[in-house]
C-alpha cells in the first residue's frame, strides 16, 4: 500500500505549474501522476518521494489536499501484462476506481497504481493470486 497525494485544481492556466513548482522547490520528486479533469476542475493525483512533507507544504501553500491509500502493482512490461492482472482482479469482483502508470520503472517490469474500492480485500486477493505489489517505502525511493 502506498500514499497518494490528491490535489484539487481549478481549470485555469498556471495551476498545475504552481503545484509542481512548490514540490520542486522543496526537493520533492514526483514518481507518478495522473490528472482527472472536468470542464471546471481537475484532480491531480501524485506519488511522490516524501508524501508526508508534500502533503504539508501543499496545504501550507493553500491547496486542498488529501491523502489516499493506493496499491502499486508490479507486472511484466510486455503485451497483455496489465490485462492478465485486470482479469484476475475482476474475477474477484474488486472494483477499481481508477489507475495510472508509474514513471520510469525498469527491469522488464511495469508498475501500475490502483485505487480500489476496498483496499484490504484487494490486498488479500493479490496475495492469494500472487500478484506482486510494492511496499510504500520502496515505492517512494524508486
Amino acid at each position: 500500500m502506498a500514499k497518494q497525494i490528491s490535489v484539487f485544481l481549478e481549470n485555469s492556466s498556471g495551476r498545475l505549474a504552481h503545484v509542481t513548482r512548490v514540490l520542486g522547490d522543496a526537493g520533492i520528486n514526483i514518481r507518478a501522476l495522473s490528472i482527472a479533469d472536468t470542464s471546471d476542475f481537475g484532480i491531480l493525483r501524485l506519488i511522490v518521494s516524501e508524501p508526508n512533507q508534500a502533503y504539508r507544504i501543499l496545504k501550507d501553500a493553500g491547496f486542498t489536499v488529501s491523502e489516499t491509500e493506493v496499491i502499486a502493482v508490479r507486472m511484466p512490461d510486455s503485451p497483455g501484462g496489465l490485462a492478465d492482472v485486470l482479469d484476475q482482479i475482476s474475477e474477484e469482483s474488486i472494483n477499481i476506481e481508477y489507475l495510472y502508470a508509474f514513471l520510469g520503472f525498469a527491469g522488464g517490469e511495469a508498475l501500475v497504481i490502483f485505487k480500489v474500492e476496498d483496499i484490504n480485500k484487494a490486498r488479500e486477493v493479490f496475495q492469494k493470486k500472487n500478484i506482486q505489489y510494492v511496499d510504500a517505502q520502496d515505492l517512494y525511493k524508486m
Binding site: 484539487f8 482527472a36 493525483r45 488529501s66
Partner: peptide, 15 residues
Amino acid sequence: EVSEDIFSDEVRKLE
C-alpha cells in the same frame, strides 16, 4: 470553495 472535508480524489464524488 472546496474544503478538505468535501474534497475527494474521485471525480464522481465531487461531481
